Amino acid sequence: MRQIVLDTETTGINPKLGNRIIEIGCVELNNRMLTGNNFHVYINPERDSEEGALNVHGLTTEFLSDKPKFHQIVDDLRAYIQGAEVIIHNAPFDLGFLNHEFKLLNLPDFSSHIGGVIDTLVHAKELHPGKRNSLDALCDRYGVSNSHRKLHGALLDAELLADVYLSMTRGQNSLGMDAEEEVVSGAELLEPVPLADIIFLPATEDELAAHAATLAGLDKAVKGQCIWTATTTPPAAA
């Protein structure tokens, strides 16, 4: 089975605000074996990165200025990922950006070119409920060395994630006796509030979508869960 471990770097956290992809890194697995047939490109987004994103990836506008634009690499990307199962950490973030880039070029969604998606963040939460499940935390948990990771890079992160994924899916590697503290539910921290005089205005679908996109971006920036997601996700059933 052909699988592609994929990661992106972007100018910000929300493509609907004009943010773009600036780096794509992919690592190929064939029957759970690394093949060395990787895909890696830097992309000129034709805009500056937001300060927070720049602090994460360090890819300056000057560095990206002579790199190809997305429309110049999209055919190679489509050929590379065609029909493969794609493995991503916090998949909604990367897929949101990739689908947006394809839409700008009037192409079918990125998702329509692949054979399925595995979200390692979802898988990690199922295996380690209440624990830190960022890429760095998973590297520590599974003994994957990331000491050379000073800034986020799409290819480096895809390589680390490939090692983490293979370790996660090899079988249970411990008796689950980790001493990490469980995340406290946000509901446990709140005092009861009288509701009699409160008027509830439900969010619109657009507002909910924008909120979800922002949270996915924050989760992506920390390669795991931001504090809002961590404190509002219901605890896993015993």
Rank of each mutant, 00 (worst) to 15 (best):
T10P: 05
A91C: 01
V193L: 11
Q82C: 08
L175V: 03
R132H: 00
N133P: 02
G25A: 05
P45E: 03
F102W: 09
D140W: 06
V86R: 11
A137D: 00
N19E: 14
D197R: 10
I73V: 15
L138I: 00
C26N: 09
V122F: 07
I198F: 11
D109A: 15
P68Q: 05
E85T: 15
P192V: 11
L127A: 01
L166Y: 00
H123Q: 12
D163C: 03
V193Y: 06
G83A: 11
K125D: 00
A210Y: 07
R78H: 01
G12C: 04
S134H: 04
K67Y: 02
E46V: 01
I13W: 03
D76A: 14
I88T: 05
Q225L: 12
C26F: 08
D140R: 15
E180L: 01
L34V: 14
F200D: 15
N14L: 15
E9Y: 10
L218Q: 15
W228P: 01
T229Q: 05
H57P: 14
E101W: 08
I21H: 00
S134A: 03
K67W: 00
A212P: 01
P192E: 13
T11Y: 03
T61F: 10
D48Y: 14
Q225N: 11
H123W: 05
N37M: 12
D75L: 10
K67F: 00
V183Y: 01
A84L: 09
N44M: 04
L189W: 09
G83Q: 12
S147D: 14
L104N: 15
I199E: 15
K103H: 10
V144W: 02
D136Y: 06
N30H: 13
I199Q: 13
A238H: 08
P108H: 06
E28T: 13
A238T: 08
R78A: 02
L195W: 10
A53M: 07
D140F: 04
P202T: 14
L104V: 08
N30T: 13
M168T: 06
V144H: 01
G176I: 02
R149L: 08
G130D: 00
N38W: 12
S134M: 01
R47I: 06
M168C: 06
V74A: 04
E188W: 10
H128Y: 06
V183A: 03
H57L: 12
T35G: 12
P194M: 05
R47V: 03
A158V: 09
L107H: 04
L77V: 07
G130P: 03
N38F: 14
D197N: 15
L190G: 01
F70R: 09
V74N: 03
D66N: 15
L161D: 06
A212L: 12
T60F: 09
V164G: 02
Q3Y: 09
H100N: 14
